[in-house]
Design a protein around this nucleic acid. Structure first.
Lengths: 330, 330
DNA sequence: CTGTTAGCGCCTTCAT
DNA sequence: ATGAAGGCGCTAACAG
């Protein structure tokens, strides 16, 4: 079923059909109606293959997430999709599993014209970026001053600082840190240190639990810390997963949350409130982040087609976070 | 950058380049090498637009999930992707949000040749299916005898029955049910009833908590049940989310799990073990399910191209589940 | 073994 | 306001 079939069916040239489909050129209302009816009768859907080949564009963006298992991405993706719909764009979600090979694969997907651009929601953005030099792309949720690209993010350091300030205000004097080693994890650690400094509290190395990523790692680390007899009455976790692991490990050790130890997480994922003790956390404006990321990429993709005004400094959009206070800290 | 550029660069016809790229036809080793070098030097990636138009296929499948926020899908998707890679297929993940409009959108994506087929991981498969009549598609994780299509699933009734038998063996005499109203939820309810019948235990309507989907709904329902003073010492939840909500609600009511109430969930999602009381659950063989779903669709898509032997009865693949025993039931 | 050539389905001038 | 025709990049049939 192609435009030719429709053409035969209703006796109008394919050029006119194309004009109707794309709202381009001028078509007599009566002709337009005839075409519309024919399309409906035959249940015709134009092939994107022909169109894309002709226009050398797909109106499709790739969203590259580390793994869809992480619910952090869901709301951002949804927001990107909503924005895309407004512009008539398709979205494909791809998982990187943080593998460099996969990044190459996605970059090639753009080169081979399967998509027009990439939105990278990856925690390992820096590693990926070398592959994307030639593809229009935007990084969302990760910033690193050392590379130059369009970026949407929150101020991780500031947010972490506020989270720790909140713990201190709630009465915590000895606050532990849990986090990974990604760029944003380091920024969150910097915020933690800053808050301690500003409150004139010492930063104790034994309370610094680094290189933590999974639930199991977090659980083990907090269990060890508690067993070691180290004194602490607060935990700032760079991730809700780690915060949940901390709460469960503490309870298993006979400590009470928040009475003995106050806990704050980061990201406000679904299970932050599904925990036995609902967790205080930093909420990122994920909806706004997704929309901003799409629009940034859209602009870039369109500009590339227009090919005037091609060069433009990369933009760094920073959005506002929010502290959500729940039982784990009060 | 097209095959013509490569052709100019190395002085070989585009036909030969195509043969090298597709491993089709016969090419002298020396020529092949020359072509490979040229491709590497120019960093050429063939346009899928031209190729797809020519072959009228995209080697791309859509995976339609209700929402990527539900980690249930992650492992299935991963497994599908692995299988796809073996065959040189691309995978696009799409979210349906259970909206019928979105199903139409996906069906059109296939009609417009953006993809060759659809794997439906949706709990509302039945509603979607009318849209997919013309598109090669496979349903994974949902069966309903009333419609005819290729299907990969476990035996939900049997699995639920085993879960409840386990509760009964563990000493539970009055087991409550929590579940939604999807087809598989009903099948799980049937298994629950069967287990009670076979153990000669009465089925008490007041212990039947239906139409439950979200964490909050589950939490509220179990809280009400406990407050009502109804006697129960076991809960079979049709979903891990509901099981977690039950555990948290029970603890909040001062009940102990598993001493006072034993709980079993379904699906073995990440947070089934991230809960304060790790949850006994039914694990679906998600890896095998994903692989089976891909291969089923692959066969269908290829058969459609071959167009001989087109008609074939739809297949219904049923795979084995597994009971994972954790603290919530022992 | 390699090159030439005819479309795949569509959009877009250019005529009319 | 509409139609005819070329070509987007590639594959496959046919020549050589």
């Amino acid at each position: 079923m192609t435009m030719n079939d429709v053409s035969d069916h209703i006796g109008v040239s394919i050029a006119t059909i194309s004009r109707v489909l794309n709202n381009s050129g001028i078509v007599k209302p009566k002709t337009r109606e005839k075409v519309m009816n024919g399309i409906r009768e035959l249940d015709f859907v134009p092939s994107s293959l022909g169109r894309n080949l002709r226009t050398t564009g797909t109106k499709t963006f790739l969203i590259c997430v580390q793994s869809i298992e992480n619910p952090y991405y869901a709301e951002i993706v949804r927001s990107i999709e909503e924005e895309a719909k407004k512009r008539g764009y398709y979205i494909m979600i791809c998982e990187s599993y943080s593998s460099l090979k996969r990044y190459k694969y996605f970059a090639d997907a753009v080169k081979s014209k399967k998509a027009d651009g990439i939105i990278l929601l990856s925690p390992n953005a820096k590693d990926a970026i070398e592959y994307f030099r030639e593809a229009p792309f935007v990084v969302c949720g990760e910033t690193d001053g050392t590379f130059d690209c369009d970026t949407v993010n929150i101020d991780n350091e500031k947010a972490a600082c506020e989270a720790v300030e909140h713990l201190i205000r709630a009465g915590a004097k000895r606050v532990a840190f849990m986090g990974g080693d990604s760029k944003s994890a380091l920024q969150r650690f910097a915020g933690y240190e800053k808050a301690l400094r500003e409150a004139n509290l010492p930063s104790d190395e034994t309370l610094r639990l680094s290189n933590l990523f999974s639930y199991d790692e977090g659980y083990a680390a907090v269990s060890r810390l508690a067993e070691s007899g180290a004194a602490f009455d607060g935990i700032f976790a760079g991730t809700d997963i780690l915060a949940v692991s901390a709460v469960n490990a503490l309870i298993a050790q006979g400590k009470r949350v928040p009475e003995d130890v106050k806990v704050v997480g980061f990201d406000d994922l679904v299970f932050a409130k599904m925990c036995a003790v609902p967790i205080t956390t930093i909420r990122q404006p994920r909806k706004a982040m997704g929309a901003a990321a799409f629009n940034l990429l859209y602009e870039k993709a369109v500009r590339k087609t227009d090919d005037k005004n091609k060069a433009r400094d990369s933009q760094r959009i920073v959005l506002e976070h929010e502290l959500i206070v729940r039982s784990s800290s009060k």
